[in-house]
Simulated assay, not measured.
Amino acid sequence: MVAEPLIATEPPPSGHPQDVAAGGMVEIIRSSFALVEPRAEELGRHFYGVLFSRAPETRGLFPVNMEVQRSRLLRALVHVVQMVDQPEELIPFLEQLGRDHRKFGVIAQHYDAVGYALLSAIAAFAGDAWKPPVAKAWTDAYGIVAGAMRAAADAERGPASWLGRVVGHRRVGWDLAVVTVQSSGPVPYRSGQYVSVETPHRPRLWRYLSPANAPRQDGVLEFHVRAVPGGWVSRAIVAHTRIGDTWRIGPPMGRMTAPASNDGLLMVAGGTGVAPMKAILEDLARRQQRPRTQVFLGGRTWDDLYDFDAVRRMSYANPWLDVIPVVETAEEGSGAERGTLAEVVTRYGAWADHDVLVCGSPAMIRATVSRMLVAGTPLDRITYDPFTLD
């Protein structure tokens, strides 16, 4: 006899996202997750083992090598746990996630199977701490997660994904490439957002990339890709992408877009984090009114500022834009500020009256945001997306 699902995939009776933080749910979710997080790798194996046993057809949705996928599960869990008391940000993220999952061919029954596997994994590793209040908190939380994702997916009428043909591949360095892709139709992203891509060299392994240009009617997208250690997809893109390759492109995600206000704008970019910033600057240049914009582009060495000249040319053509290079190992007379981005940006002040956009590696984002908060930058003025390396 097949056991009944542990969870329901509909929101709690009220249906209001604000209820996500009711009744001590936040504290219960976070404290119980803290118990199982040290055993994240085992948790991931347990989750997928139960999922594939309960819904064998889902195995074909994932890559042969599950190592990367297991780590992504944990990152997604951590992100949701961190935002569980911020429904105004969590719900839009889940809606984007639901629309994105259409590209996998996810159907309603899969949400039930995922919920069953998730609660089974948490229960198995929480041990004696898995008591009725904990089970209810996770059940209700997953109900909200699945409800938001399913509602957004069901309401979406656009394509689940787009095909794109590689029309340009330029090596900028041994570990960096600029790839130009012509999509089958305009991808409806906003400048600063990111999309997931699947390449023929790594089927069913998706990587998030930010277009480096504002949306164009001809569907052309430029991506900056750095090969990172252990990066299955990024290394394949840099080393093996060829003109004519066909990519699959998922729906847009992310909340880092050009602010609607004309308050001062601060943009902090490290490494390939310059890509979405260029798209936003291109978008701003098309407007009649633009905010006074300060850009800091940083890296360990000058080689990391591979696109600085292009952004500097944009500043020459737009008097509202100023660009400052930041290098940790700057040579005398180079014209660059010396130090980390976190150090240099806060050296200039708290930027309390600016909208702030930050993009780069996870470590760079954490260091910069933390230091800016200490310096006095209001948290609600800072925007960044939870990027991962691969």
Rank of each mutant, 00 (worst) to 15 (best):
G98V: 08
M83V: 02
E67Y: 06
Q96I: 07
A76G: 03
L74Q: 00
P87Q: 08
L90P: 02
E95A: 13
V78K: 02
L73Q: 04
M66S: 15
L77V: 09
S71M: 05
L73S: 01
E89A: 06
D85A: 12
Q82A: 11
P87S: 13
V68Y: 11
S71G: 15
L73K: 04
E95W: 11
L94V: 07
I91Q: 03
H79M: 09
S71F: 04
E89T: 15
R70P: 04
E67G: 12
V81K: 09
I91G: 11
P87K: 15
Q96W: 13
M66H: 13
P92D: 12
L90W: 05
S71A: 13
E67V: 13
L74E: 00
Q82G: 08
I91E: 12
V78M: 02
V68M: 14
G98H: 14
R75S: 12
L77D: 00
V80D: 02
P87M: 03
R75L: 12
M66P: 11
D85C: 15
R75Q: 03
L73I: 11
Q96E: 12
R72L: 12
A76S: 05
L77Y: 00
R75P: 04
E95P: 05
Q86D: 07
Q69T: 11
E89R: 13
P87W: 02
P92C: 08
E88L: 09
L74I: 03
V68Q: 04
L74C: 00
R70M: 04
V78C: 04
R70L: 09
R72G: 03
N65Y: 11
M66T: 07
L77G: 01
Q96F: 12
Q69W: 14
V84S: 04
H79R: 10
P87F: 13
V80T: 14
L73V: 14
M83A: 11
Q82T: 10
V84P: 04
V78R: 01
E88G: 12
R72M: 10
E88P: 07
E88K: 06
R75N: 14
Q86L: 06
L90F: 14
L74W: 00
Q86I: 14
Q69P: 05
V84W: 07
M66V: 11
Q69S: 05
V78S: 02
L90C: 05
R72Q: 14
R75G: 07
L90V: 01
V81T: 13
P87L: 15
L94P: 12
I91Y: 02
M83F: 03
S71D: 01
F93C: 09
E67F: 03
R70N: 05
V81D: 14
L97E: 11
E95Y: 04
P92S: 07
D85H: 15
P87Y: 10
G98F: 08
V80L: 12
H79I: 01
M66L: 06
G98P: 14
L73M: 13
V68G: 09
R75M: 10
D85Q: 09
Q86V: 10
E67N: 14
Q69G: 05
F93I: 03
L73D: 08
L97S: 08
V84M: 06
L73C: 01
L94S: 09
R70F: 10
Q69R: 10
D85N: 15
A76D: 01
L77F: 08
L90A: 01
L74P: 00
R70S: 03
P92V: 15
R70T: 07
V81A: 13
E88F: 13
L97G: 06
